[in-house]
Simulated assay, not measured.
Amino acid sequence: MPNDKNSKRFIAVAIATPIALATILFGFIYIYDPLQIFHKSLFGKPRFFGEMRLGARGIIEHYDYDSYIIGTSMLQNTSAKEANQKISGNFVNISPAASSIAERAIILNFLFKHKKPKSIIYSLDAFTDEMRGKVNFKLLYDDSKLNDLEAYLNDRFLICILTLSKNEKCVGKPDIETALQWYREEKHQQRLGGFANWIKYNPDELKKFDLFNLKPVIFDDNLMDITKQKKFLSQFTLPFIKDNSQTKFYLILPPYSRFHFRVFPSAFMERKKVVLWLLEQIRDLDNVKIYAFDDLDYPDDIANYAGDTIHYAQDMNSLELSAIKDKRHILTLDNAKSYFDKVEQKIKSYDVEPFIDMIKNL
């Protein structure tokens, strides 16, 4: 009989111990909650993560913003405070870096379930259904609270939780205005200023293109099939615009460098065909406008780009907001042809010889 009692006690302890430990762990997770999934930060001041695939959920649910900036890294430098000054609304920037429109659709779907946003500034890029997040972030935006715990069941957060660390890597940054602004990082500041700085501070970028074998630019609409892009926009972008007439959508066409389109003319053909198609889809909608800047002189100057061919300096983000405020640089069916004709000519005449000479002299 004693052996039976001991066996039962052992079994009870064996069952109860992991349950107790799990309960304690989940209690710690709930209290610590650095992503603010369950509640606002309990660390005195709010804390925010730059990884908005994970961080946007808590911001949407627990904070009283009425307008949102949601793009790729092209909009991460956009100041919400400046948007407040230039455009009516209480803005917050929740742009996930390198996000596809499918990923942004997950966040937008959650947003429109919980809020009725006044305005959304959205970048027209990454027209794919790829999921680039390191974790299955979609779980954070479904209707279940229980599976949200999975966001913390990894080496990164478990160590933070078990040590109750207040390190920035564990609990985020205190200033949501600057949390996403990559232009503030020293490496990006170094790369601005011209091709010489690219060579010095980001030489791997040069491997992406072969300047010594460039062919004359030929723009042929028949060479670019945008069937997939149209499908994804119809699935992941247009429904939000069409179903939410109370929300103003400001669609930003990020101005990649002239160098980029001279080296990759197919990228420009994709842009042109997608935008022309999109203009047809929104022609009768009053709550959306497309803002385009490729026809300016700004993309001609490689010094405006931070070490690669597409990521522009913060002053362009400011110019984009000014365009919305002043109702300028709006692309329509009436002006689209002349706009793209002008940009095509600029790309064709763009001189890459100075860059080739610099590479030869390395």
Rank of each mutant, 00 (worst) to 15 (best):
R132L: 10
L223Q: 15
I310D: 07
S245D: 08
A80R: 08
F268T: 06
S99N: 02
D129I: 01
L211Q: 12
D148S: 12
F91S: 12
D308N: 14
L108T: 09
K230W: 05
L111V: 03
H329R: 13
K8P: 00
D142L: 12
I15L: 13
L54W: 05
L180T: 13
G71C: 08
N147F: 01
H311K: 02
L238F: 14
K215S: 14
F28E: 07
I29D: 00
W198Y: 14
F232A: 01
V13F: 14
Q235E: 14
L146A: 14
L253N: 11
P255R: 12
G58T: 02
M224Q: 09
P255N: 07
E168L: 08
V171P: 11
F219A: 03
T332K: 06
I159A: 11
Q189F: 00
A313Q: 11
D210A: 05
L319E: 13
K166R: 14
F259R: 09
P255E: 03
S100K: 01
D64M: 04
A14S: 15
N361I: 03
D301I: 08
L139F: 02
A102E: 14
P46G: 03
P354W: 07
G44C: 10
Q190A: 07
F91Q: 08
G71D: 06
L211V: 10
N90Q: 04
I282N: 07
K231P: 00
T17F: 14
N287P: 08
Y305I: 01
K187L: 04
N109Y: 01
A12M: 04
V263Y: 06
L285V: 04
L333E: 09
D341G: 00
F261T: 12
K145G: 01
K5D: 11
Y30L: 06
I69G: 06
F28L: 15
V343H: 06
I94F: 12
V135R: 12
F212I: 03
E186S: 08
I107R: 15
D4L: 15
I252F: 10
L276D: 11
E205L: 05
F259N: 09
K337H: 12
K45P: 02
G44S: 08
D357T: 11
K325V: 01
A97Q: 11
V13A: 09
D155T: 14
Y32F: 14
S73Q: 12
L124F: 15
D284C: 00
R156Y: 13
L111S: 01
I176S: 02
K346P: 04
F127A: 14
I121V: 13
E82L: 15
C170R: 01
L108R: 10
